[in-house]
Every structure is written in C-alpha cells, then in structure tokens.
Amino acid sequence: MTENEMTSNDSTEPTPTTETAASSPDPSGDPLIEQSIDVEGTDATAGETGKPVIESSDLNVFYGETQALQSIDLAIPEKQVTAMIGPSGCGKSTFLRCINRMNDLIDAARVEGDLYFEGKNVYDADVDPVALRRRIGMVFQHPNPFPKSIYDNVAYGLRIQDQTENIDEKVETALKRAALWDEVKDQLDKSALDLSGGQQQRLCIARAIAVDPDVILMDEPASALDPIATSKIEDLIEELAEEFTVVIVTHNMQQAARISDKTAVFLTGGELVEFDDTDKIFENPDSQRVEDYITGKFG
C-alpha cells in the first residue's frame, strides 16, 4: 500500500480512520466531502468496532416459488471486512445482490423484508436503485469487463457518474490499487477482453473502486487468481477496509480467516446459521453444523 500515497486529492490518503457522516443518514453526501469533513472532526472513536452500516431484518428472497434466503438478520459493520462463507448454492450471491438491489434485474426474484443502508430501507418505494448502486460497488463472481479498452473500462463509472475531473489520475490509481497497473500501463488502449481471466477480475476490481463507493461487495474476487495476485488482492481488501465497508464472498476458509473481521456462515437452504467475529467462528463456533462445515466434515 504505497503507490496510492502519491495522490493527495482523493480519500486514499492514510488518514486515521474516523467515524464518518454515515451515522447521520445523509443521502446527498459525497464520499469525498464526507472524508474531508471527518478529518477536521474528532477521531476519538477510531478503531472501535464499526456500527452497522447495512442491516437486514427478516429478509426473504424467492426465485419464483423456491425460497433462496430464509429470514436473514444480519448487521454488517462499517469499515470492516465481512466474509460470507457457505456451500455452493446456499444463497451468498443472492444476499449480496440484495444489498445493492441487483436482484431487481432478475425477473423471477422477489425480495421480502427489510434491508437498511445507512438507516434507510433500500426497498422503500422512494429509493432509486441507481443512486444506491453508486454508493455500493460490486465485483461479480465471473469477471465481466466491457468489450472496451482497459482505460475505458476503468473510466466507465467515472464517466457515467460525471466525475470526469483528473480522470487519468483516477484510472491510474485504481489500476495500481488493484495490482494491475504494471501489467497494463503500456497497453491501456487494448481491449479488456484480450486480458487473462485473472487480469480481467482485477480490472473489474479497479473499475469498482475507481468511483470511490462507500461499500464494496465482492463475490469471490480471487477465484480466478494465482496465489501472488490473490495475496495482492487480499492486501488491497485490508487496505480498502480502512475507508470502505467490504463484504466478500469466498469459498476459501483460510482467506476468510485471514482478512475478515466478521464472518457469516450460510448453509444449504439459505439460512444464516451463525454470524460473529471471525476469530470466534473459526475457533469456537456456537453451532455444531458450522464447526462441521469449517472443518470439512460437511460441505
């Protein structure tokens, strides 16, 4: 985490973590402005366990007739890494998509219950999903860069959100943080589809963080990466957690144990079995089923 210190205008400066304006739900708040206000404010509460920024209560999701999530109650703390683990098909991606309302795009999906982001129920009628998604970035399970140049991919979000000042710098910073800059700096005009799968995934991460969202949802961001790139991404995630709230789905137990502060364990059928501090989950889980899953007796 050294390159980003060169850019001084954005929020990647290593300022002490502070409690942000997120506590008072201020939908118009621009992350940049919030950050600069906070610096002047108090930093007394730094390091304290974040208060919940995303809270779900009795959240049920149905695909047609089948229920994919069963009454999920979960509170994701601010500026920490929350991991979601569980066997394939247990609804991790579904829960992630609930947070930024990507389920709206699936015709068959129906969401019941409440999910609060900064105190506002995102399923209220007056919430514009577009505004929500501008604050909650997402990296998908399969790399999905646009069939455009590498540069245009990273610049896409900046352009559609009208953040076109210093766009070259922002693109460069994002690519550096995603550990991709050295590989592509000479070929920013090349089509993103000509990159390898792992490079594409890092490009998608760069694309998501370029716009400085408040929350980043990552659906198995490291599944297509080699160990070196994976560890770079893990470093990135830990670094991101200083300023952003990160929610990550992973099938890799060690990864979850390494990088996350909190862990949610989903089990087949779409129920949330246990949600607690990561150390607790991995060392001394309450539920026998969680212990079985983690130790590999059940999958």
């Binding site: 795009l105 505004a131 069939p147 896409y156 559609i160």
Partner: peptide, 11 residues
C-alpha cells in the same frame, strides 16, 4: 453480464 456490470456501476 455486460448489462449487470453497467447497472452495478450505478448506470
């Protein structure tokens, strides 16, 4: 997936 990527960026 292109559409999802775009919507996911807040387009």
């Amino acid at each position: 997936s292109f559409r999802q990527a775009s919507y996911g960026m807040g387009a």
